[in-house]
């Protein structure tokens, strides 16, 4: 299981990549493994929307499970990854790259302090596997 060092993680299994004031958000390798083959990705937000931390902004579906994706931080939507609706399997194959879900201009960067670093998230995943 890959948990890149340069990202931050939410306990609901989303990752956040911070570049300046822009945050890119996706779901972790752990999450995609739990769901198995993803067949459907839906993001319920569009560029320009003001969105709040903890809101459900998307859904991932596999054959046997469905999971909500929850916003780890608040901000204004810059871009949504439209490609995923046609290639949902990318969430399984490249969760930290091509399968990013949404990009935000952060409105309260202080919220980042509530997220886990790679080490803490690794430990969190291991605990759940037992």
């Amino acid at each position: 299981m890959k948990i890149p060092e340069n990202l931050m993680y939410a306990k609901t299994d989303e990752w956040v990549k911070v570049e300046g004031n822009v945050a890119t958000i996706g779901v972790s390798d752990y999450a995609q493994q739990q769901l198995s083959d993803i067949v459907f990705v839906e993001v319920n937000a569009s560029a320009g929307d003001e969105v709040k931390k903890d809101a459900v902004f998307g859904t991932l579906e596999s054959v046997k499970a469905a999971a909500d994706v929850i916003l780890p931080i608040s901000g204004k939507v810059i871009e949504v990854n439209e490609d995923l609706s046609n290639t949902p399997e990318v969430v399984n194959s490249d969760p930290y790259g091509a399968a990013w879900l949404i990009k935000l201009e952060m409105s309260s960067p202080a919220e980042l302090s509530g997220l886990l670093d790679a080490k803490a998230y690794t430990k969190f995943c291991e605990e759940r596997s037992h």
Partner: peptide, 13 residues
Amino acid sequence: TLTAREQHIRREK
């Protein structure tokens, strides 16, 4: 197919 929408998986959702 598309059973992940259904009650036995999504329950209250």
